[in-house]
C-alpha cells in the first residue's frame, strides 16, 4: 500500500515536472494544453465556446509571430544579399584574375547554396562571373575537338590546361586558370548531354572525356590504375595483378578501350601492351611545347 502511494506521488511528481518543463519551452502551447486538461472535465456550451475563443486567439498569436519571423528573416536575407553583392562587385576584378580567390569565392557561394554560374539572370549577370566560365567551357570544347583525332576524345586535365593557356594568349590574367576552374567549367558542359564528362582517376587527377557515351566501370578503373602507375601503357597482367581481376575481365576492359579508340595496342613486346595517346608525353606536348618555345 505504502509502495503504491509512493508510486503515485512519484508519478504525479513526474507529471508536474514534465508540465513545468513543457511550460518553460513552449509557454503558450503548454498553458493551453494544461487548460485543456483541466477543462476537459467541464462540459456544456459555455465551455466549448470559451475553448473555441481561446483557440482563435492562439491562432491569431501564431500568425503574428510567424509574420514577425518572416519579416525578420527577409530583412536579414536582404542585408546578406546586398553584402554579398557588394562584396562580389567590389572584388569582381579580383575574382576574374585570381584563381585562388575565385576558388574561395566559389566555395563560399556553394556553402550558402548560391551558384553564380547557374544564375545568368539577376545581379550575378552584372558581374560576369558566369561569363568567365562560359568562355572557358567553349574553349574547353574547342581544345577537346582539336585533339580528338589524336587521343580518341580523352584528355588529361593537365594537357587541357596547357593547351588552353596557350590558346588564351600570353597576358598574365589569361594564364591564371586553375584546375578547379577547369573542372567547374567542364562540369557545366554536362548540360549538353553526356558528351562531356569529367572523370576522376585518383590522386587528384582528372580526365575529360569528350566523346558521346560513358566510360564503363572497368575502363575507369584501368584509367585510375594507369594514373597510379604513371606512364602511358598497361598490359593485361598488370591489370590482373593490380586490380585482382579475372584475366577475361581485364582482356575485355582493355579490348573495349581499343574498340572505343581510346587505346592503341602494341604487340611487339612480351605481351600485348595497351597505350593511351592521351597520357603519352610526346603526344600531349605535341603542338604545345614546340610553339611555346
Amino acid at each position: 500500500m505504502l509502495l503504491y502511494l509512493h508510486n503515485c506521488i512519484s508519478l504525479s511528481d513526474f507529471f508536474l515536472y514534465g508540465m513545468f518543463k513543457l511550460y518553460c519551452c513552449y509557454p503558450l502551447q503548454s498553458a493551453l494544453l494544461f487548460q485543456n486538461l483541466i477543462m476537459r472535465r467541464k462540459a456544456g456550451v459555455g465551455a466549448i465556446q470559451k475553448q473555441k475563443l481561446q483557440q482563435e486567439k492562439y491562432q491569431a498569436k501564431t500568425s503574428t509571430l510567424q509574420e514577425n519571423q518572416i519579416e525578420q528573416l527577409s530583412k536579414q536575407l536582404e542585408v546578406f544579399r546586398t553584402n554579398l553583392e557588394e562584396f562580389a562587385s567590389k572584388h569582381k576584378a579580383e575574382i576574374k584574375k585570381n584563381s585562388e580567390f575565385r576558388k574561395q569565392f566559389q566555395a563560399m557561394c556553394a556553402s550558402i547554396g548560391v551558384d553564380p554560374l547557374a544564375s545568368k539572370k539577376g545581379f550575378w549577370s552584372v558581374l560576369g562571373i558566369g561569363d568567365f566560365y562560359y568562355e572557358l567551357s567553349v574553349q574547353i570544347i574547342e581544345v577537346c575537338l582539336a585533339t580528338n583525332h589524336k587521343n580518341g576524345g580523352l584528355i588529361s586535365l593537365d594537357e587541357l590546361r596547357n593547351r588552353l593557356i596557350k590558346a588564351r594568349g600570353q597576358s598574365k590574367h589569361h594564364q591564371e586558370i586553375s584546375k578547379d576552374d577547369l573542372i567547374c567549367a567542364a562540369q557545366k558542359l554536362k548540360v549538353l548531354g553526356n558528351g562531356f564528362t569529367v572523370i576522376p582517376i585518383g590522386r587528384g587527377d582528372y580526365m575529360v572525356q569528350s566523346v558521346p557515351g560513358e566510360l564503363s566501370m572497368e575502363q575507369t578503373a584501368v584509367l585510375t590504375l594507369l594514373s597510379k602507375l604513371g606512364g602511358a601503357s598497361i598490359s593485361e597482367s598488370q591489370v590482373v595483378d593490380n586490380l585482382k581481376w579475372e584475366k577475361a575481365r581485364a582482356t575485355k576492359a582493355l579490348k573495349n578501350m581499343v574498340q572505343d579508340g581510346l587505346a592503341w595496342v602494341d604487340t611487339q613486346s612480351d605481351e600485348p601492351t595497351y597505350w593511351l595517346p592521351s597520357l603519352f608525353f610526346e603526344c600531349v606536348s605535341d603542338g604545345v611545347s614546340s610553339a611555346g618555345s
Binding site: 580518341g152 574498340q259 579508340g261 592503341w264 595496342v265 603519352f280 606536348s285
Partner: peptide, 18 residues
C-alpha cells in the same frame, strides 16, 4: 612526328578508325 616514338604506332591497329 610524335607517333614515331609511340610503340603501338608500329602495330597495325585493329580498330578501323584508329
Amino acid at each position: 612526328p610524335w607517333q614515331y616514338n609511340f610503340p603501338p604506332f608500329f602495330t597495325i591497329q585493329p580498330n578501323k578508325e584508329t
